[in-house]
Amino acid sequence: MDLSTTYLGLKLKNPIVASASPLSRSMESMHRLEDAGTSAIVMHSLFEEQIIHEAESLDHYKSAGTESYAEALTYFPDTGDYHFAPEEYLELVAKAANKLEIPIIASMNGITPGGWTSYAKKMVEAGASALELNVYYIPTDGTMAGVDVENRYSDVLKEVRGAVKIPVAVKLSPFFSSIPNVAQRLVSEGADGLVFFNRFYQPDIDLEELDVKPGVELSNSYANRLPMRWIGILFGKTKASLAATSGVHTAEDVLKLTMVGADVTMMCSALLMHGPEYIGKVLKDLERWMQEHEYESIEQMKGSLSHKSIADPSAYERANYMKALNRYKLLA
């Protein structure tokens, strides 16, 4: 049975990729991911803020209150050279690329073009096989039009694209007016792959403190319905690789997403819940299902249930809503 797939031009041994998560923060857990069977690792993100502000903030706090009072002209010893997050990140990419057999996809998270994107080149030098660009942007300004948000994606992509030759994927927000149009634009501007979707962490309210608290909720399988629809719609209409992330928990999830057209399915929450070894179980289940249903390869099923491949494409469209609504009425 052939589980292999191609993503961003990289030949991968199966369609399960470990997506950006804390598991890629140490070599130990990355080894475990590889041993469990992941076909590639998307590293945790290096944030624009880390590149820009970390050094400044350390400088600020180390020098606060200095040269003010004769007995305490400084408060910290000079501890020599510092390893800031970007350097640590690059070191880890280099180690991972060197020690692991599977491809390493480095990830960058930022919202403005600028100096920080020069780290893309350093990531390539460190040995990354591809880059994933995560533009985590929440517009709050009413004067900002949808196209302005799209331009941000585009600007960051162009800057990174201009700096490196390796494949670049863009992780998208699900909140564009026309996802196919954005996808088309980004691909025309050099994106080799699209990742569906960024899970924006939704804020929560603390009623006692009257405060907004950031909350991190792990996903469940239901969350893959959103990427499922849009990958299904885009399959066959773009030359870019398509990756599904959000809600990939079981072999069934992998199968469904592959059938709508995903080249790879990326796991995060499931691995955080069950550990890296869980990939092995999903792969076994995947093989078993394919055997039971007499599939020969992943490529064979890829896109078989996509928008363009199914008899009733309206299932992906407005009609889907009507059907769902009717079903709800019946249940009620």
């Binding site: 590149i51 050094a55 050279d81 510092y82 800031f84």
Partner: peptide, 9 residues
């Protein structure tokens, strides 16, 4: 040693 951004600033 404190970072390029501090220098640039």
């Amino acid at each position: 040693r404190k970072g390029e951004s501090v220098v640039q600033k």
